[in-house]
C-alpha cells in the first residue's frame, strides 16, 4: 500500500495548482508583451537597436521585469502542488516527485536572474554604452534559453512518474505524460542557440523561439487542467494507487 500524504488542505493545493496559470499569464503579458520579448530582437541585430529598445521602452521594461520577477516563484508553487498529486501516484517522498519539485523550483532561478538582466538594462540605459546594453540583452537570452535542463528535469520526472499510475483512469492520461517527456526532451534544441545569430535555431528563430516557447506555453494549461481534476478526485476520497 502506498503511503499517503497526511496533508488534506485541498483548497491550498488547488490555489497552488492555479499558480501555474498565474505564472503563464504574467510571463506572457509582463515578460513577453511588456518586455518586448515576443519575439526577441535578433542575435544578428546591431548594438544600437538593442540600446534603443532599452532607452525607448525603459519604463515598460522596468515594470514588466519587476512584475515577472515577483511572480517567477509561482512556477515553484505550482510544481509543489503537482508533487502533492504525484504523492498519490507514487507514494510519499518518491525520487521522481522530488525531481519534479526541484526541477520546478530551480526553474525560478534563471527566470529571476535573466529578468534582472533586462531590468538592469532598462534601469539607466541613457548612461550606458550600446555594447553594454547589448551584452545585458545577450546574457538574459542566453541564460533563459540555456537553463532549459532544469525545467526538463521537472517535465521528464512528471511524465515518467505519472506513467506509473496504475488506476483504470489515471490522474494524468498517458498522452499527457508522454507530452511532458517530449517537451522536456525537445528543449535540448536550445543547446544549439549560442551557435547561431540568425536562422531557425537563433534566439528569435522559428525553432528555438516560436516552437519551443509555444510548446512550453501550452504545457502549463494542460498539466493544470488534469492536476485540478486529480485534486478533485483525491478530495472525493479516491485512494492511492
Amino acid at each position: 500500500m502506498v503511503q499517503l500524504t497526511t496533508d488534506n488542505s485541498y483548497g491550498t493545493w488547488r490555489f497552488c495548482a492555479w499558480n501555474g496559470m498565474i505564472f503563464m499569464g504574467v510571463f506572457i503579458v509582463f515578460w513577453g508583451i511588456m518586455g518586448h520579448n515576443v519575439p526577441p530582437y535578433g542575435g544578428d541585430m546591431d548594438a544600437s537597436v538593442i540600446a534603443n529598445y532599452f532607452r525607448d521602452n525603459a519604463n515598460l521594461v522596468r515594470l514588466g521585469m519587476a512584475i515577472s520577477m515577483t511572480f517567477a516563484v509561482s512556477y515553484a508553487v505550482w510544481g509543489i502542488s503537482i508533487g502533492k498529486v504525484m504523492d498519490y501516484i507514487l507514494g510519499r517522498d518518491h525520487i521522481l516527485t522530488n525531481l519534479q519539485v526541484w526541477g520546478a523550483g530551480l526553474t525560478v532561478v534563471p527566470i529571476l536572474v535573466s529578468s534582472s538582466f533586462w531590468l538592469t538594462g532598462s534601469y539607466r540605459p541613457e548612461a550606458l554604452p550600446d555594447e553594454i546594453l547589448q551584452l545585458l540583452y545577450d546574457m538574459a537570452w542566453l541564460l533563459i534559453d540555456l537553463a532549459y535542463s532544469v525545467t526538463s528535469v521537472q517535465m521528464i520526472a512528471l511524465g515518467v512518474g505519472c506513467l506509473r499510475d496504475k488506476r483504470a483512469q489515471p490522474f494524468f492520461p498517458k498522452w499527457v505524460c508522454w507530452y511532458s517527456i517530449w517537451v522536456g526532451f525537445m528543449f535540448v534544441a536550445e543547446i544549439l542557440m549560442p551557435m547561431f545569430k540568425s536562422g531557425a535555431f537563433a534566439r528569435q528563430g522559428i525553432l528555438n523561439f516560436w516552437i519551443e516557447f509555444m510548446i512550453f506555453f501550452i504545457y502549463a494549461p494542460i498539466i493544470t487542467f488534469y492536476q485540478l481534476k486529480a485534486i478533485k478526485r483525491i478530495e472525493a476520497g479516491e485512494p492511492a494507487a
Binding site: W178, M186, A200
Partner: peptide, 21 residues
C-alpha cells in the same frame, strides 16, 4: 503503448518542421 504513439507523432512533426526549414 498508445501513449508512445503520441511521443512518436509529436517528434516526427518536429522533424517535419526541420525538413521544411
Amino acid at each position: 503503448d498508445p501513449g508512445v504513439w503520441f511521443f512518436i507523432i509529436a517528434d516526427m512533426a518536429m522533424f517535419a518542421i526541420f525538413f521544411l526549414i
